Computed example of a mutant assay.
Amino acid sequence: MNWLLVVAGAVVGAPLRYLTDRSVQARHDTVFPWGTFAVNVIGCLVLGLLSGAVTFGAAPRSLQVLLGTGFCGALTTYSTFSYETLRLAESGARFFAAANVVASVVAGLGAAFVGAALAQAL
Results as ranks from 00 to 15, higher is better:
residue 87 R to W: 06
residue 89 A to N: 04
residue 11 V to Q: 02
residue 28 H to T: 09
residue 69 T to V: 14
residue 87 R to G: 03
residue 60 P to I: 04
residue 13 G to S: 09
residue 48 G to I: 01
residue 108 G to A: 07
residue 15 P to W: 03
residue 102 V to D: 02
residue 72 C to P: 06
residue 115 G to R: 09
residue 107 A to P: 08
residue 59 A to N: 04
residue 83 Y to E: 11
residue 34 W to C: 00
residue 71 F to M: 02
residue 116 A to N: 09
residue 54 V to I: 12
residue 34 W to Q: 00
residue 36 T to H: 05
residue 67 L to F: 14
residue 89 A to H: 07
residue 81 F to E: 01
residue 18 Y to G: 05
residue 114 V to F: 11
residue 27 R to T: 09
residue 62 S to A: 11
residue 64 Q to E: 13
residue 58 A to N: 06
residue 117 A to Y: 03
residue 31 V to S: 09
residue 14 A to Q: 10
residue 9 G to F: 03
residue 91 S to K: 06
residue 37 F to Y: 14
residue 121 A to M: 12
residue 111 A to G: 07
residue 35 G to E: 00
residue 31 V to T: 08
residue 72 C to D: 02
residue 99 A to L: 15
residue 99 A to T: 07
residue 75 L to N: 04
residue 16 L to S: 12
residue 60 P to D: 14
residue 84 E to T: 07
residue 107 A to Y: 14
residue 34 W to D: 00
residue 13 G to M: 05
residue 17 R to Y: 09
residue 6 V to W: 03
residue 1 M to N: 15
residue 116 A to V: 02
residue 112 A to N: 01
residue 88 L to R: 00
residue 74 A to W: 04
residue 7 V to R: 08
residue 90 E to F: 05
residue 4 L to K: 13
residue 22 R to P: 01
residue 71 F to P: 06
residue 23 S to Q: 02
residue 62 S to D: 10
residue 82 S to Q: 07
residue 81 F to V: 04
residue 11 V to L: 15
residue 77 T to N: 02
residue 81 F to K: 00
residue 2 N to I: 15
residue 16 L to W: 09
residue 57 G to Y: 08
residue 40 N to I: 13
residue 93 A to P: 00
residue 55 T to L: 08
residue 10 A to N: 06
residue 91 S to D: 08
residue 95 F to Q: 01
residue 23 S to N: 02
residue 62 S to Q: 07
residue 74 A to H: 09
residue 37 F to M: 11
residue 54 V to R: 10
residue 62 S to T: 11
residue 81 F to G: 03
residue 119 A to V: 01
residue 103 A to S: 15
residue 61 R to M: 10
residue 45 L to E: 08
residue 57 G to D: 04
residue 117 A to S: 12
residue 81 F to T: 00
residue 29 D to C: 03
residue 59 A to S: 13
residue 64 Q to Y: 12
residue 119 A to H: 03
residue 120 Q to N: 12
residue 63 L to I: 10
residue 46 V to M: 07
residue 13 G to C: 05
residue 30 T to K: 00
residue 39 V to H: 03
residue 122 L to R: 08
residue 91 S to W: 01
residue 75 L to G: 03
residue 27 R to A: 12
residue 67 L to H: 09
residue 4 L to I: 15
residue 49 L to I: 09
residue 73 G to K: 07
residue 12 V to P: 05
residue 95 F to S: 06
residue 118 L to R: 03
residue 39 V to D: 00
residue 72 C to Y: 05
residue 7 V to Q: 04
residue 28 H to Y: 11
residue 44 C to F: 15
residue 90 E to L: 13
residue 5 L to I: 10
residue 112 A to W: 01
residue 90 E to H: 12
residue 82 S to P: 02
residue 65 V to I: 13
residue 51 S to L: 06
residue 120 Q to Y: 13
residue 39 V to C: 02
residue 49 L to S: 07
residue 90 E to I: 02
residue 92 G to V: 12
residue 18 Y to D: 10
residue 101 V to I: 15
